[in-house]
Amino acid sequence: MRQQIHFVTLSTTDLDAARRFYRDGLGWEPLADVPGEILFFQVAPGTVLGLFDSVKFDRDLAGTQDSGTEAAGPAMSTSAAVSGVTLAHNVEGPEEVAWTVEAMVQAGGRVLRAPEYGGFGGVHHAFVEDPNGVVWEVAHNPGWHVDQSGNVVLG
C-alpha cells in the first residue's frame, strides 16, 4: 500500500453549520456540495476534506442501502465521538496565527486555547473548535515549513 491519504471524512451532525463555517465564514470554495449529504473541500494537492451528514455517515458505515436493506458486511458503531485528533493549519508567523483564529471565531468557531507559545519545538499555536466539534490547531513552527509542492520539510 502506498503511503498516502486522499480523503479525510468527518461525521458532521449539522451540515448547514459546517457550510456556514467553512464556506461562508472562512471563504473556502467547495469542490462539491450535496445539500443534506456531504461537503467536499480540496485542502491540498490530492487531498480532500469531506464533511458528511452524520446520519448518512452512520448508514454508509453500517452498510444500509437507501432502500433500507442491509448490505453484506459487518455493521460498525459510530456512537463514540472522535477524540485525540486535531486538524492542523500551518501559517507563516505568530501574527497569522492570531489573524486566522479571529477569522475562525468570526465564522462561528470557539477558541479552546488562545494563541501562545507551546512546549514543543518553539511552536506558536492555538486551538479552535468548529461548530461540529472538529478541533483545529492553527500553528506556526519555525523549525519546519510546507514547500511550494505541498510537502512538509522538517528542519
Rank of each mutant, 00 (worst) to 15 (best):
T69W: 03
A72V: 02
R110F: 08
G50H: 07
W144S: 12
V138W: 06
A88L: 06
G155Y: 01
S77T: 10
N141M: 03
E116Q: 09
T78H: 08
Q148Y: 08
S11L: 11
V8R: 03
D33F: 13
V134C: 09
L31V: 15
V135N: 04
V111A: 01
E95T: 10
W144C: 08
M104N: 00
A62H: 15
V135C: 02
T100Y: 00
Y22L: 12
R23E: 15
A44E: 07
P30C: 05
M104C: 00
A72G: 07
E96A: 09
G84H: 04
V85N: 06
P142R: 03
G121Y: 07
A71G: 14
P131H: 09
G150D: 05
P142K: 13
V134F: 06
G63F: 08
Q65F: 14
V128P: 10
E116D: 09
L49V: 05
Q65H: 05
A107E: 00
A80H: 11
A81E: 13
V91I: 07
F21W: 04
A103Q: 02
V43W: 03
G68T: 08
L26W: 11
V34T: 10
P115E: 04
V48F: 00
D58I: 00
F41T: 13
Y117H: 14
N90L: 01
D24L: 04
A98N: 04
P35K: 11
D66R: 10
V138A: 05
W136Y: 06
R110Q: 10
S83G: 14
D24H: 01
G133K: 05
R19H: 14
L39W: 06
E92Q: 15
G133Q: 00
A62M: 09
G36F: 12
V101T: 00
M1A: 09
V85H: 07
G93D: 13
A72R: 15
D14N: 15
Y117K: 06
V123S: 04
I5M: 12
H89L: 13
P35L: 04
A72N: 07
R2Y: 14
G118C: 12
G150S: 08
G150T: 10
F40K: 08
E96P: 01
T100E: 00
Y22Q: 03
G25T: 01
P131V: 03
F41R: 07
R113V: 06
S11Y: 11
E96K: 05
P115M: 12
S149R: 12
S77V: 03
A75V: 11
G25L: 11
A103I: 00
T100H: 00
G63K: 12
G155W: 00
V123D: 09
G36S: 14
L31I: 10
H140T: 14
A107R: 02
G63E: 05
D60V: 08
T9S: 15
L112Y: 05
T64E: 13
S149L: 02
L26V: 01
D14L: 02
T100P: 00
A81P: 04
T86F: 15
A139N: 13
L61Q: 04
L51T: 06
A17L: 12
D53Q: 04
T13L: 10
E37F: 09
W99Y: 01
A17F: 11
T100S: 01
E116R: 07
